[in-house]
Amino acid sequence: MPSLLLVVFGLQLALHVINTVGANTINELLWILYTKLPTPTSTSAQKAQKLKREVVRLKRELNAVSAQDNFSKWAKLRREHDKALSEFEKSDGSVRSHQTKFFSTLSTVRWVTTSGARLSLQFWYSKKPMFWLPQGWVPVYVEWLLSFPRAPKGSISINIWDIACASMIALISEALTAVYVLMTKKAPPTAQPQAFEGAPQGNAAESEKKEL
């Protein structure tokens, strides 16, 4: 069984990576991987992409034909375009519904395995010392702070160890970022801002449909 010290450190490292990369970015990457697997959802996603390409092709052909000069061909292309667009919207709606459920499940699993696990460990092991300080090494009031909230005095509590891990990971991350900037002369990559974790990109979908 891994040491509790390492478990707490690993949870803080996972939380730091998620916050740095961005939950939405991770969701999108996992969704792409999921749609590559042989599942019914991947089949629907591939069908939606195929219909999208067909709609775009018909739209271009429709724009290239004059309704006045060649009405019969224009009307035929129009019917084909409207039919393909209707099928695409239906297929795309189904895929986006699955995507929303997928993101919601990911968000729940991610919280349970990171923040939820962290809070559970802090509650369950609140009285357990992570390790002991040498006797008389720090003043009494510092011993009390380091054992907060319920660990034995003279020890390091899981809450304080958790804070120490988070601070150390943040410092190392900032140091690595500074080294990266100095070596490459480029700004460090940053995660995309997100309003609601796991929410589908509605504006992108609407603009995409407008283009079709």
Results as ranks from 00 to 15, higher is better:
residue 88 F to I: 07
residue 63 N to V: 08
residue 26 I to W: 04
residue 190 T to L: 06
residue 98 H to I: 12
residue 38 P to S: 09
residue 5 L to G: 06
residue 66 S to K: 01
residue 196 F to R: 14
residue 111 W to S: 07
residue 21 V to N: 03
residue 189 P to G: 04
residue 8 V to A: 04
residue 163 I to R: 09
residue 174 E to K: 08
residue 192 Q to R: 10
residue 7 V to M: 02
residue 28 E to W: 03
residue 72 S to W: 11
residue 4 L to C: 03
residue 39 T to Q: 09
residue 207 S to C: 10
residue 39 T to R: 06
residue 66 S to L: 05
residue 152 P to N: 03
residue 122 Q to M: 06
residue 82 D to M: 11
residue 61 E to P: 01
residue 206 E to W: 13
residue 129 P to W: 08
residue 67 A to E: 09
residue 49 Q to M: 09
residue 102 F to M: 10
residue 60 R to A: 02
residue 29 L to F: 11
residue 85 L to R: 05
residue 16 H to G: 08
residue 89 E to W: 00
residue 4 L to Y: 04
residue 85 L to D: 05
residue 4 L to Q: 04
residue 67 A to F: 07
residue 94 S to R: 09
residue 203 N to G: 14
residue 73 K to N: 01
residue 37 L to P: 03
residue 3 S to E: 13
residue 38 P to K: 11
residue 147 S to K: 00
residue 57 R to K: 14
residue 27 N to A: 12
residue 155 S to E: 06
residue 127 K to F: 15
residue 170 A to V: 07
residue 147 S to F: 14
residue 53 R to S: 11
residue 65 V to W: 08
residue 210 K to Y: 13
residue 104 S to W: 08
residue 151 A to I: 00
residue 206 E to F: 14
residue 172 I to E: 08
residue 180 Y to D: 04
residue 26 I to R: 03
residue 158 I to K: 00
residue 41 T to R: 08
residue 171 L to N: 15
residue 160 I to Y: 01
residue 143 E to V: 05
residue 109 V to Y: 15
residue 99 Q to M: 10
residue 131 F to M: 02
residue 80 E to G: 03
residue 55 V to R: 03
residue 86 S to I: 10
residue 6 L to H: 05
residue 28 E to D: 12
residue 177 T to G: 07
residue 97 S to K: 13
residue 59 K to G: 13
residue 46 Q to C: 04
residue 125 Y to S: 01
residue 197 E to K: 06
residue 151 A to V: 02
residue 188 P to E: 02
residue 166 A to G: 09
residue 34 Y to M: 10
residue 27 N to P: 12
residue 156 I to G: 01
residue 50 K to I: 11
residue 20 T to E: 08
residue 47 K to G: 02
residue 209 K to E: 14
residue 162 D to K: 02
residue 139 P to F: 02
residue 48 A to H: 01
residue 19 N to G: 11
residue 9 F to A: 08
residue 182 L to C: 11
residue 64 A to K: 10
residue 99 Q to I: 07
residue 71 F to V: 01
residue 35 T to Y: 04
residue 29 L to Y: 10
residue 134 P to W: 00
residue 188 P to M: 01
residue 183 M to N: 13
residue 192 Q to C: 10
